[in-house]
Design a protein around this nucleic acid. Structure first.
Lengths: 125, 125
DNA sequence: CTGCATCCGATGCGATACTG
DNA sequence: CAGTATCGCATCGGATGCAG
């Protein structure tokens, strides 16, 4: 493929990249994917997630869930009991993300060692 | 699935997540994936990439390429000509990442509209 | 229990200027 | 051409304290 001498590759290519990059940054943050995977296993309440995620702060769990809810990946259900209960579950959209993520996860686990070795080699100079 | 009352889900699960999260943050930054895709099409020189990426700063292109090189995804070849020429290409490891990324890209393009709609709805309150 | 508000350090990223 | 150095702003993300 020959790249144009000036400017971006193409408007079409750019549009695809914009979409992809948007998803990647949603999914590339520290907790979103892990949260989605946990909710893919089962519906969970706020503090259940907090414990399961092992190390997330309340602040970030709230932010992560809000972000996923905003993007239509997660459904938030409030039970007006006392004390209040809130259940988080995946929407169909959220569930549909599970497979692409699994593909990447498989790649990650299969090539983790190779990446680590490469880093060690690179850093040893 | 029943989560343990305390602590993380399991050591096994955690290890998988660590690997996956590592890849996701490598791939979740603003330019890495786009760079890999471009290099997947063809070997490129520094300023070729800069133009093709349309908007990246020198600083970030350097950092991105260094990061990918460190992880063994990209190979950097210097030709000691005058002026100097540097060619960047994908390693086999880098090429192997192309497919998982394509899966995610396909998902992104297929669900972009749905995510946008959800955001609009969510924000309208 | 489920949050929100605040503070603060660490990091991401662009702009600009300079170098072999 | 292919970088490096420095700046400054924005965002990420943890810690802590307060509230319905």
């Amino acid at each position: 493929m020959k790249l144009p001498a000036q400017g971006k590759v193409s408007a079409r290519f750019d549009a695809e990249c914009a979409a992809t990059r948007e998803i990647l940054s949603r999914v590339g943050d520290k907790w979103s994917v892990l949260t989605v995977v946990l909710l893919g296993l089962e519906t969970h309440r706020f503090n259940e997630l907090k414990r399961a995620l092992g190390g997330i702060s309340q602040r970030m769990l709230t932010a992560t869930l809000r972000g996923l809810e905003r993007d239509g990946m997660v459904k938030r259900t409030v039970f007006p009991t006392n004390p209040p209960q809130v259940a988080y579950s995946l929407t169909p959209l959220g569930r549909s993300l599970l497979k692409p993520v699994a593909v990447l996860a498989t790649w990650a686990q299969g090539h983790r060692a190779q990446v680590m070795t490469s880093r060690k080699t690179y850093d040893a100079r």
